[in-house]
Design a binder for these strands. Structure first.
Length: 354
DNA sequence: GCGATCAGCC
DNA sequence: ACTGCTGCTGATCGCT
């Protein structure tokens, strides 16, 4: 379709084909040339069929090279993959995973999820998988002390639905799936320190509309707004921010004269207490689970952590005990202003247990 | 060997 | 993206 041979895996060559030879409109540039990132290409897919093929190629190439071939190379003689977890890498207190990275195994697409099915327990065992529900938003409710957000979690509400109801001014039972989807983008955006401009890019609405949504959000959840302001000031005054348990992130760039650098530090200041408190909580849970396993003499073993999720390999005879204990231990690691909820699944492969 | 780009996850 | 959504790791390109 390009009319010539080129390396589809080279963003540089692809940029020349799409934006110089085919004269497609380019949305943005990187420091080295045209951007061919997925969000840019998606907007061009209708105009030129080759673009959809490139997006498809990239998805398949990623799954094959990083996961299908990549993971296969790590299978040890015992038939298992033994990765490495790093405790001294991230700025926020999360752990990270390498060789291979077991914390970014596909889950989003149908084809990607096929790769999760290859993770299976040893004979006679199953996986018990529990993940914290909305942990970072619960931490945001706790740290900000916002009454509306606290109430939503205490009443066991679907928080994205509750947000949609407040932002769009409709009754909770009249929230449409599209409104809920938009509220979800707003909620995650807030955790990341997103601006109206960023929200506009994400939702594909006019900037004024995005501004209106944020305005409505802060009117309904005023202490969340207050938190965003306070945490920036705290970062400027002290040079660091901290989690609910006192883990500090130092932010020297908060005083940078380069505005983009300063803004990036502000986003980190907003995000780190929430991401970091969540990381502290799951670390406490890992300690509690390991202690429980040792005290009860269980044969079950903790085999993986994925930021808000713990996976145990559990012998059949311990399934009912662990299914009860794991979410209980995870919920019980701290008394926040909102309940900590963990959802549990049991299956004979990772995809089905999650 | 390394920076840049892209794509996977939370 | 000369503001523009956090934190990571890995594959690949294209250069030194």
């Amino acid at each position: 379709q390009a009319g010539e041979t080129f390396n589809i895996q080279s963003p540089k060559q692809l940029g020349v084909i799409l934006f110089e030879k085919m004269h497609l409109p380019y949305a943005k540039k990187t420091k080295t040339g045209y951007s061919t990132a997925a969000d840019v290409l998606e907007k061009l897919a209708e105009e030129a069929p080759i673009v959809q093929d490139i997006l498809s190629y990239r998805q398949l190439a990623k799954l094959k090279s990083t996961y299908a071939d990549g993971l296969h190379a790590f299978i040890a003689k015992d038939g298992r993959i033994h990765g490495t977890f790093n405790q001294m890498v991230t700025a926020t207190g999360r752990i990270s995973s390498t060789d291979p990275n077991l914390q970014n195994i596909p889950v989003r697409t149908k084809l990607g999820r096929e790769l999760r099915k290859v993770f299976i327990p040893r004979d006679g065992y199953v996986f018990v998988d529990a993940d914290y529900s909305q942990i970072e938003l619960r931490v945001m409710a706790h740290i900000s002390g916002d009454e509306g957000l606290l109430r939503a979690f205490r009443e066991g509400r679907d928080v994205h639905r509750a947000t949609a109801s407040e932002v769009f001014g409709v009754d909770i039972e009249h929230v449409t799936s599209q409104q809920r989807r938009m509220a979800k983008v707003i909620n995650f955006g807030l955790i990341y320190g997103m601006s109206a401009w960023g929200l506009r890019q994400n939702l594909g609405v006019e900037k004024g509309v995005a501004e209106h949504y944020i305005e409505q959000y802060f009117a309904r959840y005023p202490k969340v707004k207050r938190y965003m302001e306070d945490i920036r000031n705290q970062a400027r005054t002290h040079g660091y921010v901290q989690t609910a348990f006192g883990r500090r992130l130092w932010l020297p760039d908060i005083a940078s004269s380069r505005i983009p650098v300063q803004k990036a530090a502000e986003r980190a200041a907003i995000n780190a207490p929430m991401q970091g408190t969540a990381a502290d909580l799951i670390k406490k849970a890992m300690v509690a689970v390991q202690k429980w396993l040792q005290e009860t003499g269980a044969k079950s073993r903790l085999i993986l952590q994925v930021h808000d999720e713990l996976i145990l390999e559990v012998p059949e005879e311990e399934v009912e005990t662990v299914r009860e204990a794991l979410p209980r231990l995870m919920s019980g690691v701290a008394e926040l202003k909102v309940p900590l909820v963990a959802e549990v699944g049991v299956a004979d492969n990772w995809e089905a247990a999650h």
